[in-house]
Simulated scan of single mutants.
Amino acid sequence: MSAVEIEAHLNPIRRPRPVDVDVERDRRIEDGIEFEGYLFQSRSSDRSNIIETAQLAFMAMANGISPGDLRWSDPERDFVWIALDNSRVPMDAPTVVSLAKVVVERNQSLIYAGRRLKDMEVIPSDYTDDKWWV
């Protein structure tokens, strides 16, 4: 019997499984993202919207839009992104690109943290603790 099997036999409390880590990872990915002091939604559709808008922002930058120009998307009104608290956060094109970068980096970080947990011989019972997800 391996050390893991002996531990499971001696301690019949259900041990976390890789699928449990996946659920926690996904919860963290969709739990919102902090950016420049605001909390933004980060569900799958929100992440897609952020990435798509960042592509438009990058095109505006490539076409010479100036940093600080809030009318990069529509010349008739300032561009805003709605935060989780429903406040409207003005963003120029470089800021939208930065938001997308933070979203992508955070997702990658959480995916790799989950992978590290699943690669352990025994997934720690406190796998939901923030210390494992940095």
Rank of each mutant, 00 (worst) to 15 (best):
D26G: 07
R71I: 05
Q108N: 14
V80W: 04
L84V: 00
L117D: 04
V97Y: 02
E121M: 07
L10M: 11
A60N: 06
L110E: 05
G32T: 11
D92C: 13
H9N: 14
Y112Q: 15
L84E: 13
V89D: 02
Q55N: 15
A3W: 12
I65F: 09
W72D: 04
V80T: 11
P75E: 10
A100D: 02
G37C: 08
Y127L: 00
S66H: 10
V134T: 14
D78G: 11
R27M: 06
I123T: 06
E76G: 10
M1A: 15
R77C: 09
S98I: 03
K118A: 02
P67M: 00
Y38Q: 12
N49W: 06
T53L: 12
L56C: 12
D130E: 14
S44R: 14
E30K: 09
G64A: 06
Q55G: 15
L39G: 05
G64Y: 07
V104T: 13
V97F: 02
V80A: 04
P90G: 03
S109H: 11
F40V: 08
D78K: 04
S2C: 13
F40E: 06
M1P: 13
V19G: 03
D31C: 01
L110C: 05
N49F: 11
M120P: 07
P90D: 02
G37W: 08
E36D: 15
A60D: 10
A60S: 12
I29G: 04
R116N: 11
W132D: 05
S44N: 12
V23R: 08
I33P: 09
P12E: 04
A83M: 03
H9R: 15
D26T: 05
P16T: 00
K118H: 03
H9F: 15
N11I: 08
S45H: 08
R71V: 09
M61S: 11
D46W: 06
K131H: 10
